[in-house]
């Protein structure tokens, strides 16, 4: 009796799996739900996603509060004593562009993107909380005079910002980790958050 029940149970599991995996209607339904979920992105969730990206080393490493760029997932200080220098682009002779070109160098593992530089010190984020970062981001006195509209453009179109999703390989040829939110979802989250007036949750 127990054995029969057990066999029936296994059979129904297999049948359920086979029907489910061959059923196109259920796959479509899954996609529809996924779209709906996207449309129903809440402002809080959008804020969370934006911040999850901004807090990731791919973004944070070039937003130091101590003038020293950071490298790697462990955020160690940039080798060779490099620091901000003049205009966020290094020193007069040894500058960011001495090694960093307009695109990733897959031979040397040196990352690159157009106008490679540190974020200005007023946009230093390291060590700040999410809401403090958001405040700096939104404040025209710290963000270089940018309106919300200009911030959306900067965050969704600037090639150096978007480098985070094309970070290339490191000096050992290992692919650099990307931010935890996809480029597409990040752009959607940015648009949603700013559409709602970019509120910063109080907690």
């Amino acid at each position: 009796m127990n054995r029969t029940a057990f066999l029936l149970f296994i059979f129904s599991l297999v049948a359920f799996y086979l029907i489910g995996s061959n059923n196109e209607a259920s796959l479509e339904a899954y996609e529809v739900i996924s779209e709906e979920q996207r449309d129903s992105l809440t402002t809080e969730r959008a804020y969370e996603q934006v911040m999850n990206v901004l807090m990731h080393p791919r973004c944070m490493n070039c937003h130091p509060t101590d003038d020293v760029p950071k490298q790697g997932m462990d955020r160690h200080p940039h080798y060779f004593g490099m620091s901000r220098g003049k205009e966020n682009k290094g020193f007069s002779v040894t500058k960011c562009a001495t090694c960093h070109q307009e695109e990733n160098n897959l031979n040397s593992g040196v990352p690159g993107a157009p106008h490679w530089s540190l974020a200005p010190s007023s946009m230093g984020w390291q060590g700040l909380s999410r809401s403090e970062i958001a405040q700096r981001l939104l404040n025209p006195e710290t963000n270089g005079g940018k309106s919300h509209e200009e911030l959306v453009t900067h965050m969704t179109e600037d090639e150096l910002v978007l480098w985070a999703w094309n970070p290339g390989v490191d000096a050992n040829g290992v692919q650099r980790e990307k931010p935890p939110v996809s480029e597409e979802d990040f752009k959607k989250a940015v648009e949603k958050w700013f559409d709602e007036g970019a509120p910063i949750p109080s907690k």
Partner: peptide, 12 residues
Amino acid sequence: EAVRSCSYAVKF
């Protein structure tokens, strides 16, 4: 400008 030519693609 000084550049490190091991990491500078010739196209640039």
